[in-house]
Design a protein around this nucleic acid. Structure first.
Length: 323
DNA sequence: TGCCCCCTGCAG
DNA sequence: CTGCAGGGGGCA
C-alpha cells in the first residue's frame, strides 16, 4: 500500500545495495505479477534505481557487465547492445520487495528468523510478517537471483501489483507513465492552482489523482488536508488561491516528513520495528487511522467518512465544510 | 466524474 | 459473516 515516501525509502535503500549487481536468474511464481520476457534481463547489471510517482524503476544495462567491474574502463560505446532495459515495479496495495544479502534465507528450523538473519535483509513496501519470515512465502510472486548470491523477492498478497520488463520506449509509452502528473514540489503555486481548478471533484480525490499530481495516496492526502485545514469534500473550484497555496505547502510537508521517517509502517506490525525494520511515520499521523481520537490541535473527535471509495479522516472543527 | 472491479486476508 | 485495506484501470 505504499505511497511516494514509502517507495522513495525503498529506492534509497536499494541504491545502496543493488547498484552494480548482475541478475543471473528470475523465477516467475505468478503469471500476472511479471510481464515481458525474463530472458531480456538475464546477465544484465543494475545501473540506476528511480521512482516515477509510486512506481519504482530499476534500470539495467544490457551491455557488457565487465565494463562496470573496473573503474578505469572506457566509456560506453553507443552501439545497439547498449540499449537499456527497465524493470518497472508497481506495488499497488500489498506489494513488497525483500532483498536478502548472501543467501541467509531461512531460519534453521522454520518459523521466524533470528535477528542475525534479519539484519541481512533490505525490505520495503507493504509491511507483513513476510518481512521477517521464511522466504519464499505463499505471497512470493517473483524471485530475482544475483551473481553475488543476493536474492530479491517480490511478494504481493493481493496480486494487484506488477513488474514489467520494458525497453526505454516501452516504458515511456506506458499509459501510467504517459499520464503521470508532476510531483508537487516541481510545480509553482500558480501551476498547482491551475491544475486543481481544471478538475471538478472533491479536493481529496483531486490530490490523489495521479494524473494531476503524482505520488500522493490516502495517508498523506488525509494528513495534508488536516495540515491545511481543508475539509476533504471541498470542491476544487471552491478553493481560493491562498488556500491552494497552503495545501501545496502542506502536501510537501507531509511527504517530506514521510521520507524523513522512512515511510509509514502499519501499527499491527510492531514486531517489525523491534527488528529495526520499517519507517515510523505512523507515529506522526495527523488524522489518518485516528477515527474517534482527539484532534491533535483542538481535541475535537476525528471523524471518518468514505470519499471516492476510500476511508477519509478529518477534524470537523479544524476542517469545516464550506457551504 | 462516479462506480465497480481486480484479489487476499484480517478485524469486528 | 461483512466490511475494509497505503492503488489504479475500465466502464457508463
Amino acid at each position: 500500500m505504499p505511497e511516494l515516501p514509502e517507495i522513495e525509502t525503498i529506492k534509497l535503500q536499494l541504491q545502496k545495495v543493488l547498484i552494480g549487481q548482475t541478475i543471473v536468474g528470475i523465477e516467475q511464481l505468478h503469471k500476472k505479477s511479471l510481464q515481458g520476457n525474463p530472458q531480456k534481463v538475464i546477465g544484465k547489471q543494475v545501473v540506476a534505481i528511480k521512482r516515477f510517482g509510486k512506481m519504482l524503476v530499476i534500470e539495467l544495462s544490457s551491455s557488457h557487465p565487465e565494463r562496470f567491474a573496473s573503474l578505469d574502463s572506457s566509456p560506453p560505446q553507443a552501439d545497439q547492445n547498449d540499449k537499456l532495459i527497465y524493470l518497472a515495479i508497481h506495488f499497488k496495495m500489498s506489494g513488497q520487495l525483500i532483498l536478502i544479502q548472501n543467501a541467509k534465507i531461512n531460519p534453521p528450523a522454520g518459523g521466524q528468523n533470528d535477528n542475525e538473519t534479519i539484519r541481512n535483509r533490505v525490505v520495503g513496501g507493504h509491511p507483513t510478517e513476510d518481512w521477517t519470515g521464511k522466504l519464499p512465502s505463499k505471497h512470493t510472486r517473483v524471485i530475482f537471483h544475483f551473481k553475488s548470491g543476493d536474492t530479491m523477492f517480490f511478494n504481493d498478497q493481493r496480486i494487484f501489483g506488477w513488474i514489467k520488463i520494458l525497453t526505454e520506449e516501452e516504458l515511456r509509452n506506458l499509459s501510467f507513465v504517459k499520464n503521470l502528473g508532476p510531483e508537487i514540489w516541481d510545480i509553482s503555486d500558480q501551476e498547482f492552482y491551475e491544475l486543481i481548478h481544471k478538475k471538478k471533484k472533491a479536493i481529496k480525490v483531486a490530490i490523489m489523482d495521479q494524473e494531476l499530481i503524482s505520488g500522493v495516496g490516502n495517508i498523506y492526502a488525509n494528513d495534508a488536508l488536516w495540515e491545511a485545514r481543508i475539509h476533504p469534500q471541498t470542491r476544487t473550484q471552491g478553493l481560493t488561491f491562498p488556500k491552494v497555496k497552503l495545501l501545496q505547502a502542506a502536501v510537501i510537508k507531509v511527504l517530506k516528513e514521510g521520507i524523513k521517517y522512512g515511510g509509514a509502517t502499519a501499527a499491527d506490525t510492531k514486531y517489525i520495528n523491534l527488528h529495526g525494520l520499517g519507517g515510523t511515520y505512523q507515529e506522526h499521523f495527523r488524522v489518518y487511522d485516528r477515527n474517534g481520537q482527539a484532534c491533535l490541535r483542538c481535541k475535537a473527535v476525528i471523524k471518518k467518512i468514505t470519499l471516492g471509495g476510500r476511508g477519509t479522516y478529518f477534524c470537523p472543527t479544524c476542517q469545516p465544510e464550506l457551504h
